[in-house]
Design a protein around this nucleic acid. Structure first.
Lengths: 155, 155
DNA sequence: TGAGGTTATGCAATAATATAACAGTGCCAA
DNA sequence: TTGGCACTGTTATATTATTGCATAACCTCA
């Protein structure tokens, strides 16, 4: 346990607390634990990784608990699911709802979340051109991040 | 079985045959069966749906057979995987490699494949801005298609 | 305050998706 | 004709996710 916990986790939790209060939804103890597990990892974590983390504290936790919490956190925009990896990451900008995109490095496992207006625009226009009304989008690029590309070429 | 088989299936199979021959790869009987199952459905099908279809003919087929064939067909660009649905669809334009995007209707289950240059551009630019080198992309919009939206509003 | 609705959790089982590992088979080319 | 490679068979199992039902916590409004 206790991998490299990004320092921002506590701040993120407080922000989530505020946000949920403002929205009149309940950030319960379970949900907070799951959010901490996701944000604390600093990289994508699978549902069963989260489960294992919870079980360190509460040995009897079962999968539905985790999935329910994740569903809530996703609805609140506090956590995103990466369909490419079957894994979850904390949201970089939870305060306002937004379409986001992900750059997933297969070398180092880092994931960058971006919120690119040009992408959102082009998606919206393409959808409109087909008369399609999107409710949700998945945009994930898999490849090599700048750092890893540099390491590969630089030697 | 024998759902609404789009008439184009046989044509798609012949096209796939030609393509594979040209590329010097083998479209074996298994692979052809899987491709037929995917294209014949006319909508996204799960790996285990395909398995069931194959078993109508060959009762002893096992999951790895299906997944191996799907992997091949995806590499050849004959089939796409929809990460949002854990399901597979025949490619609309198998002849040339291309980045494609999908519009998935939650009402009727139809999936439209598009190949929008503006989307591809914006993705490429965003990646470049981060120094990211994409090898593969997943772009899937979930929502309501034109037909279903019309039916909903039109009454 | 407490009756009744709604939301959240506990718990057991199982569904659905996907891969590992290893053995065998067939094809093709040197 | 044999050696290598790609493909397939087979068994088992890993991984991800959901269903269904029972219980508990919370909220509100009379």
């Amino acid at each position: 346990m206790s991998a490299a916990e990004p320092a921002g986790v506590e701040r993120e939790l407080r922000q989530a607390e505020t946000l949920c209060q403002r929205r009149g939804v309940r950030l319960t103890a379970q949900r907070r634990r799951v959010l901490r597990a996701v944000c604390g990892a600093g990289r994508p974590v699978g549902a069963y990784d989260i489960l294992a983390a919870l079980r360190a504290e509460l040995p009897r936790v079962a999968p539905p608990t985790v999935y329910r919490a994740l569903e809530f956190l996703q609805r609140q925009g506090l956590v995103h699911k990466l369909q490419t990896l079957h894994a979850y990451v904390g949201c970089a900008h939870p305060d306002h709802p937004h379409a986001s995109q992900f750059l997933i490095c297969t070398d180092c496992g880092e994931v960058e979340e971006i919120a690119d207006a040009a992408i959102a625009d082009s998606l919206g226009q393409a959808a409109a051109a087909s008369g399609f009304r999107p409710t949700h989008g998945v945009v994930e690029l898999t490849g090599t991040c700048a750092d890893c590309a540099a390491h590969r070429n630089g030697r």
